[in-house]
Design a binder for these strands. Structure first.
Lengths: 220, 220
DNA sequence: CTAACGTTCAAGTATTTAATTGAATGAAGG
DNA sequence: CCTTCATTCAATTAAATACTTGAACGTTAG
C-alpha cells in the first residue's frame, strides 16, 4: 500500500547522512571543524589520524553535505556546512547520555567525572556575563580562539595555563570552556585552577554549541 | 597531546549510534515503532522487508539502545527506547532539509510538494484545539490510533476515508495527521478532502513528534 | 621551468555489514 | 506430547567501507 518510492529514497538519503556521522574519526573531525575552518594537514595532526585517511573522510562528509571545502593556494580549508550539523551531533550525544547504563564502564566514569565538575549551562553563563561577575576563559589553542570565541573571553591554551596563573584574577570566579561538552580541555583547566586555589568551573557546552544556539561570537 | 582514550571511545560509541540509524530499513522501522509497540511480523509487513531481515535490524537497534523488546506469548513486541530517539531522527531530517539543493531531484519535488500543502505547526494546532475551531483527523491504521493518538482526534484510516466523508463536518476546518513529517498518509488525506470540497490541511509533524514534544496523548 | 609542498586519486587488502536460507528455540494449543 | 507458529540463530554469499601505499595533480617559490 504505502511503500512509496520517494519516501524510501528519502529514508535512504537520511540513512546516508547518519552513516556519514557514523565513524569515530569523522565525529572527531567535525568537533575540530566546529572550532573553525581548518586545513587537512592540521586536522590530521589534531585528530591523530593518517593524512590520506583524513582526506578521504573529509570528502565523504563533503559528499554528504556536512562540510564544505575551499582552496586557498596549496591548501584546502574545510569547514562545517551551514546546516544544523552541530545540532545533529548534539542529538547523538543526548541519545548516548540517556543510555548511560548500557555504556562500557570506562566511558561512563569518564562522563560522570566530567559531570562532577558541575558544569555551567549556556543560559547561566549568559546571565553571569551580563552581570560581569565572572572571568571567562577559553582554553583552546590560539588559532581556534582567533577563528571565533565567546564575547570577552580571555585565551590561555591549556598547555600554557600552568605558567600563566598570575594573569588570572584570584577573587573572581573563572569559567573555562573549550571545544564541546565532552572536550577535556576545560575539564583539565578547571581541575588545575581549583588545585591552585581558584574558584573555577567549566561551561557544559563548548564554542560550537554556543554559536549554534545563535549567541554572539567574536573573532580575531 | 589530547588523544585521550576515553574520549575516543565515547566518539566510537556515538558513531555506533549513528550507524544504527544509518540504514534505510532501520529508519523505516523506527518510524513505525514511533506509532507504538509492534511485533516483528507486523513490522515486516508494514515496512515491506523480509522477515528475518527485520528481526536482525531490530536486534541491531536493540544492541544500540534505540529500541526495546518484550516477549508476550509467542510474539516479541518491540518499541522505541525511552531516550530521545525521535529527536535524533528529527535532527537528521532537519539536516537533510537544509541541504535540499544537494538532493536528487525526485526527493526534492516530493518534499516541496509536501510543503505546498501548507502544513500546520504543532503550536498552531495546540492553539486551534484549545479554541475548538478545528476537527482533528488521524488517518493512520486503527491499531496505531488505539496505541496512542492526539487528544480528541477522530480516526479514519486513509484507505477508508473515501467511504466515510459523511462522517466529517463540512463547515469546520479539518486537520489531518499521521506518522510523521514525511508520511504521505495525511498528505493524501488532505488532498482527497480538498478535492471533495472540504477545508483541509495537514499537521507538519506526526504523532511521535507530538508525543516527544511532551504534549498530551490519549490511547484506547 | 623545476622543485617543493599540500592534497587528492587509484589500487590493493582487510574488515564490516547486508541479505538469504534453513535450522533451532520457545511458547501455545490440540 | 507433538504440532504449530513467531522469532532468533548460524552460515553463506555479496557488497560496502576503512586503511595503507605510492603515484598524480595543482599551486607556489625559486
Amino acid at each position: 500500500m504505502s511503500s512509496d518510492s520517494p519516501k524510501r529514497r528519502l529514508n535512504a538519503h537520511l540513512a546516508g547522512l547518519a552513516r556519514a556521522l557514523g565513524h569515530e574519526h569523522r565525529l572527531e573531525l567535525l568537533e575540530h571543524l566546529g572550532q573553525g575552518e581548518k586545513t587537512v594537514e592540521l586536522l590530521a595532526r589534531r585528530a591523530g589520524v593518517a593524512f590520506a585517511n583524513v582526506s578521504q573522510h573529509l570528502q565523504q562528509m563533503r559528499r554528504a553535505g556536512l562540510v564544505t571545502a575551499r582552496r586557498n593556494g596549496k591548501r584546502v580549508h574545510y569547514s562545517l556546512a551551514d546546516g544544523p550539523v552541530i545540532e545533529a551531533v548534539s542529538a547523538l550525544r543526548a541519545l548516548a547520555e540517556h543510555n548511560l547504563a548500557e555504556m562500557p564502564e570506562a566511558i561512563r566514569t569518564y562522563l560522570t567525572s566530567i559531570d562532577d565538575m558541575e558544569p555551567v549551562s549556556t543560559d547561566e553563563l549568559a546571565a553571569r556575563l551580563r552581570d560581569g561577575t565572572v572571568t571567562l576563559l577559553d582554553v583552546r589553542p590560539e588559532d581556534e580562539f582567533r577563528a571565533g570565541h565567546l564575547p570577552g573571553a580571555l585565551n590561555i591554551a591549556l598547555e600554557d595555563l600552568g605558567d600563566r596563573l598570575t594573569d588570572l584574577p584570584a577573587e573572581r570566579q573563572i569559567i573555562a570552556y573549550c571545544r564541546g561538552p565532552y572536550c577535556v580541555l576545560s575539564f583539565e583547566a578547571a581541575r588545575l585552577l581549583r588545585a591552585s586555589g581558584f574558584d573555577a568551573r567549566r561551561l557544559g557546552d563548548g564554542f560550537p554549541e554556543w554559536k549554534a544556539a545563535g549567541r554572539p561570537v567574536e573573532s580575531g
